[in-house]
Amino acid sequence: MNIFRFSGDMTHLMSVLVLLLKIHTIKSCAGISLKTQELYALVFLARYLDIVTNFISLYNTIMKLIFLGSSFMIVWYIRRHRIVRRSYDKEHDTFRHLFLVLPCFILALLINERSAFKEIMWTFSLYLEAVAILPQLVLLQRTKNIDNLTGQYVFFLGAYRALYICNWIYRYFTEPHYVHWITWISGLVQTLLYADFFYYYFNSWKNNVKLQLPA
């Protein structure tokens, strides 16, 4: 495992921890899109179907368990927790799951590396992960005051994507036959979705003003 891949996994882990920290300590999920969190839970569920059948390393299995567990835990907090759910911004978080899930599923049926069930689900999870951040970005745009933790959460997620691209470039040059168009293109699309957010995030950081996305 190269340094880009490991750093990518760690920033991904950081994003989840920042979000759980916010929800658990402040008991608030203000500014967090439940739709995005539910989509991530579905992403991990579809992708890690091989968790019991395909052992790669202890690191891999533990990380998969963390991502699965944390995504469902976050969804549970926002939907069910007595206090946390009160801060959920239902009016502004209106994105429809199906508009993302259905096209991704159809695309996975049409374009995949192998048409076995697990492969299709894996491909579906890649496509869905690429666009799962959209409800969150829409919500950020509608939210006047984005708090620091929410901003950091999205920042870490974007950093994770950018580092994974560095990882693919590194692997392409160091490993034989390492070509995965589907993974790369969906990963690139996913990273590009953060470009706008990054621009405003760095500007607010540089000018030391509160982060706000233009409507």
Binding site: R5, D9, H12, D50, N54, I56, N60, M63, K64, F67, E113, W122, Y164, N167, Y178, H180, T183
Partner: peptide, 10 residues
């Protein structure tokens, strides 16, 4: 094999 190579990322 192809499968483990393809699935070794998170």
């Amino acid at each position: 094999d192809l499968e483990s190579e393809f699935h070794d990322e998170l």
